[in-house]
Nucleic acid binder design. Structure first.
Length: 497
RNA sequence: GCCGCCAUAGCUCAGUUGGUUAGAGCACCAGAUUGUGGAUCUGGGGGUCCCCCGUUCGAGCCGGGGUGGCGGUACCA
């Protein structure tokens, strides 16, 4: 190693794009969030399960048609036996594999939760990373849409327990069957129209970002964005376009009215009728929660595997980022019914529904609104024992040990600097207090304990350094054998304050 | 992926039509105070001006190509 060398560094320290380091504040805050979510899910009767980061790629279901290699967007590599492996990109596909593999031994419905990192090899953006954390709950083997309604209730409860007030979030519910019905009604049913259906659904999904006019362009001829890039549209005619736009606008003032409207205007096909009826059952089940669970026919969600009800957890308050620009957070979680996923591994259909919280994204949102669950995680550091006489290092260490034996976080200053720098170090570490013993104190068998929190408060009213130095604010001298007791008292003072 | 903008100290940025030794504020370190975190004053350390190639007597500045960042858009299971 080139320790002490003055050769120019040839190795550039650089985080791969789309990945993030996390410091003690964020780690502690996320741990708290996870604990709250876990408690809520367990309260609802879900049990823990864990699956690995890596699965066989075909188990995740993402091979490109006509090609023998995994889709873009997935981190993949080949095993010794030439089989493709991939980092998981969500927690649902691995759960489906787990349930299918352990089907006979699991109770049905099987209600489980799990949290962990997932990976997507995509272009990162603000709040979008290539590694991020999700926290999922799923009911497998529950055919009734009551299971979907329960997911919505639990999602709402979880957000509230995380400190998001009622009114600051909404759980929006829709049903893919209603959308499928609209597709059929405008003549886009059947296998020939898969491509155009996708284009239409994608356009609909952009309502909150592009607005009605943007969506109208994407449904029709296409749209040119601010940078001049052109996106081809779905090529619908005016009648088709207005039908699609009308369902995006079908949310009414109450869930009952919305559902009625769907039944009246969008249930002309059997599938559309079925979807509307399912939403009616859900709306009925959550009728006591209308202020937080809302039937909204504009919710689309991902395109791949949802087969029935879909839901989305949305933050409704406005936020500004560090530079004062407004940030739209939108969805911090979502889910829905995926009756076909487990069936891929087994001959029989296995109905399932689930909900996923985007923990990393929710953390970013809570941080911007200065939520107590985040800011409350500000850490106080360890008690720092200063080293004034190198020869007495064993004596200082014995003080540290005494504190640790009393279950007080403590450390010996291990740097090479003088006393002033050691005080600065303790300050920067957010130490609650510093333990000081020079030759004078040692001769008397005492230690000085400086309360750094109280001291900082006192400093505000002292202007001259002479005065500051003479006052030695918030500092007490105690016999060495009362060290632990005195430190404990200072800690107690700040815990309650 | 496509389009646009940007890159100078740890951070935020200034830097003349291309001209000597590239600056400021903040932060950091030290001293004033042989033993006390703040404030003040004084001093100090920090830069391959993102990288490579080119034009030029001479490039932080001009040209080309990379890389990285930001924004939009596409995709997002």
């Amino acid at each position: 190693m080139n320790v002490g060398s003055n050769k120019p560094a040839s190795l550039k320290p650089q985080l791969p794009r789309g990945f993030a380091d996390r410091g003690p504040g964020e780690i502690a805050a996320v741990e708290r969030m996870l604990a709250v979510i876990r408690e809520t899910y367990e309260l609802y009767g879900f049990e823990a399960v864990e699956t690995p980061f890596i699965e066989y790629t075909d188990a995740l279901g993402k091979f490109l048609p006509d090609q023998d290699r995994p889709n873009e967007g997935v981190f993949s590599f080949r095993d010794d036996d030439e089989q493709w492996l991939s980092l998981r990109y969500d927690l649902t596909a691995p759960l489906a594999r787990y349930v299918a593999e352990n089907f006979d031994r699991l109770p049905k419905p099987y209600r489980s939760y799990r949290a962990g990192f997932v990976f997507r090899n995509e272009k990162p953006g603000p709040g979008r990373f290539r590694q991020f954390m999700q926290f999922d709950a799923d009911s497998v083997g529950a055919p009734s849409v009551i299971a979907d309604a329960e997911m919505c209730m639990m999602a709402a409860d979880t957000l509230e327990r995380l400190g998001i007030k009622r009114g600051d979030y909404l759980i929006k519910v829709n049903n893919r069957k209603v959308l499928d019905g609209v597709m059929e009604a405008i003549g886009l049913g059947g296998p020939d129209n898969v491509g155009r259906r996708l284009t239409v659904l994608r356009a609909m999904d952009k309502l909150d970002r592009l607005g009605v006019d943007g969506v109208r362009l994407l449904l029709g001829p296409g749209r040119k964005d601010e940078s001049g890039d052109f996106t081809k549209g779905a090529g619908l005619d005016n009648a088709q376009t207005s039908k699609v736009l009308s369902i995006l606008n079908a949310r009414d003032e109450s869930n009952a009215k919305t559902v009625q409207r769907l039944a009246n205007e969008f249930a002309s096909t059997p599938i559309g009728y079925e979807g509307a009826e399912e939403l009616r059952i859900i709306a009925d089940f959550v009728s006591a929660d209308e202020d937080r669970i809302v039937v909204d026919p504009s919710v689309v969600r991902g395109l791949e595997y949802y087969t029935g009800p879909v839901f989305e957890a949305e933050l409704t308050f406005g936020v500004k980022d560090e530079s004062g620009r407004p940030v739209r957070f939108g969805s911090v979680g979502g889910g829905g019914r995926y009756d076909g996923l487990v069936a891929r591994f087994r001959g029989e259909p296995v109905p399932a529904t689930g909900f996923s919280i985007g923990v990393s994204r929710l953390y970013a949102a809570l941080k911007l609104i200065d939520s107590p669950i985040i800011s409350g995680a500000d850490l106080t550091g360890p008690v720092v024992v200063l080293v004034l006489d190198r020869d007495e290092i064993a004596r200082y260490q014995s003080m540290v040990t005494a504190l640790r034996n009393a279950n007080i976080r403590a450390e010996l200053y291990l740097g090479g600097a003088g006393m002033k720098a050691q005080m600065r170090y303790a300050d920067k570490r957010a130490a609650p207090c510093a333990v000081i013993q020079g030759s004078d104190e040692r001769a008397r068998g005492e230690v000085q304990i400086k309360d750094l929190v109280e001291g900082a408060r006192a400093a505000a009213s002292i202007a001259s350094n002479e005065e500051w130095k003479a006052a030695r604010p918030a500092q007490v001298s105690v016999p060495e054998d009362r060290l632990v007791e005195a430190v404990r008292e200072i800690l107690g003072r700040h815990r309650s304050g």
